[in-house]
């Protein structure tokens, strides 16, 4: 273990760290939007579109992110869709994450008592108002544990971006190892870097879960 090696690599790791954070943030945000849209459409059984979304969720959940990225990066240009590696990463993570988030939201919505829907209907609410005032606020707090688990999962999945040469943390470490053959130092730095992101986040999310659970609920 050579500290000078570690010290010299810090700037590169900081850059990779920032990129991992940025790619995670954008991908998770995209996933949440896609997931929420998907789950609402499925919840209200919107004709045709809900079937399409169900197909998407199955496809995205049952294929590896690695293969999805290869498709976006190597296969799509063949049919004329060329995207930068970063864009592929964003689209890929959103594609995968959207399906997981959809399942998490759907689980929350399924947990709402049917009586609550009746109560909303009984005061004349239309589908949109039911979604906005009953399904969404109540389902959201029920989905928080599953959403939180997905956030952690998706951040870890960004390590796969290394295969399409996005210089995030894992790619940075593998690159450095390839050049300098110092795997001990760089792998240690890699583990620490992920831990710096994930451990505090995990603690924050646990607190959030508890807040929601003991918050404003109980009929």
């Amino acid at each position: 273990m050579d500290l000078t090696v570690i010290q010299a690599a810090i700037p590169k790791f900081v850059a990779g760290f920032k990129l991992t954070l940025w790619m995670s943030f954008t991908g998770i945000l995209g996933s949440l939007i896609v997931g929420l849209l998907c789950s609402l459409v499925q919840y209200f059984k919107v004709p045709v579109i809900s079937k399409v979304f169900t197909g998407y969720v199955e496809l995205a959940r049952n294929t590896p992110l690695l293969i999805q990225l290869f498709f976006l990066y190597y296969a799509f240009p063949v049919i004329g869709w060329k995207m930068s590696a970063e864009t592929c990463g964003f689209v890929g993570l959103t594609f995968l994450g959207g399906s997981y988030m959809a399942e998490a939201f759907s689980g929350g919505f399924a947990g709402i008592a049917p009586n609550q829907i009746d109560a909303g209907k009984a005061i004349g609410m239309n589908q949109f108002q039911l979604a906005r005032y009953v399904v969404f606020p109540q389902g959201l707090s029920l989905s928080v544990p599953a959403l939180a688990a997905n956030v952690i999962f998706l951040i870890k999945e960004t390590s796969i971006f290394s295969v399409i040469a996005i210089p995030e943390l894992t790619n940075t470490a593998l690159d450095l190892i390839g050049i300098y053959y110092r795997s001990n130092e760089y792998l240690l730095m890699l583990v620490i870097a992920y831990a710096i992101i994930l451990i505090p986040l995990s603690i924050i999310l646990t607190i959030l879960e508890r807040r929601v659970r003991y918050g404003s609920f109980g009929n």
Binding site: N115, Q116, A119, V134, P137, Q138, F217, N219
Partner: peptide
């Protein structure tokens, strides 16, 4: 029967 006020 079960009141069904909105708990949130």
């Amino acid at each position: 029967q079960s009141y069904d006020l909105f708990p949130n």
